[in-house]
Amino acid sequence: MEFNPLALNLEEIEKKYPDSPLDFFKDKRLCAFKACLEKYFPGVRYGILDLANELNLKLSVCEGQSCCSGTFFQRNLITRAQFAAINERNLYELNSQSDIVLFSCNGCYNSVMRGRDFLKTPEVFQKTEKILNDLKIQMGKKKEDDQKYKILENPSVRFIHDLDFVYLIRNEVLNVLKYNLKDLKVAVHYGCHYLNLSRDKHTVEGYLKDKTKLDELVQLFGGSALDYQEKDSCCGWGASQILINPREALKITHDKLQSAENVGADFLLMPCPTCLYTLSKPEYREKMYKWFGDKLEIPTIHLNELIAILLGCEQERCMSLRRTTPRLKEIFEIITND
C-alpha cells in the first residue's frame, strides 16, 4: 500500500496563493484535534477557535476522536500495532468530518504521523489489519462499516500544526489582532516533537527550516524574540521522565526556565500544551525550588493563548483562572492595557 503524506503541503499553498494563503482555507472544513491537556489550558483551544471565527473560517472541534495514545506507546504500555490501530480509528473519524485538522500539541501531531509511519513496516501493517478486523467482528459491525475498520489507503484529510497554520497566514492574523506585544521580550520554546520531527539534515536549509517561525511571529506581533542558551533543549517532560526520574527531568526544566530568565525574558512562548504543563505546573516549580534552590517565576504561554489575548478575549477565556503561573496576569494586563 502506498502512503500519501498527511502533512499539508505548505510550500504548495504559498506558491498558489502568494498574496493571501488564507484563501486556501476558506472553502475547507477545518477541525481542531482535541489534545488532552487542553483541559488545563482552555485558552489553547479557544484561541484557535476564536481566531478562525475572526477570519471567517469553518473550524469545529473534532468529534469521536480519542487521545492520540502516544504517551502509552512511549512507555511500552501498547505495541506499535495497537498504537497504529488506535491511530487509524482516529484517522477514520477525522477523515469523515474534515478536510484539514489543526493540532495544538506537538505530541499529538507527532503521534498521528508516527502511527502512520509504523504502517510502512509490513509486519506492523499486517498486525494492525488483524487488530482492526478482530475489532470489527467483536463490535458486531455490518458490511457498510467496512471502511471504518480498515487501514485507510489514501485519506483525503490533511494535517497542520497550529504554529505552521498561524505562520502561513500571519499577515491576515495580524490584521485581526486588537493588541500587540508592546516590545515584551519573549523566549520561544519549540519543543522536541516539533523541532525534531522528520527533519532533513542533508541541507542547511532543511536543518534550519521551521525553527524560526515562532521567533518571526513574536517580531511580527510587536515583541522581541530573545536568544538563550537552552532554547533548543527539551522541556523536561521527556515522555513521562518526570514520573520515573523526576529529579533529573526537572533539572532539565529548571535549566530551561533559568536560562530564559537570565536573558531577561518577560515570558516563555511555546506551541505545545505538554511543554506548557511541564514548564508551568506549580508543583514542579515548588520541587525545583526545593531541590535546586531557585525560585523561578517566568510566566509561560501557549501560542494559541497568546493569540487569544491579542485578539482581545476576556482573561478567563484566554488563560483561565485555574492557571496559577506567577506573573501571568501581569503579562495579560501589559498587553491589554490601552
Binding site: 522536541c192 525534531n196 527533519r199 539534515k201 515522555a239 521522565q241 520515573i244 526520574n245
Partner: peptide, 14 residues
C-alpha cells in the same frame, strides 16, 4: 529508562 525520546539524536545522526 533515561531516554527522553526527543528524537534529537535521530536528527543529528550522520
Amino acid at each position: 529508562w533515561y531516554c527522553y525520546l526527543c528524537e534529537k539524536c535521530r536528527r543529528l545522526c550522520p
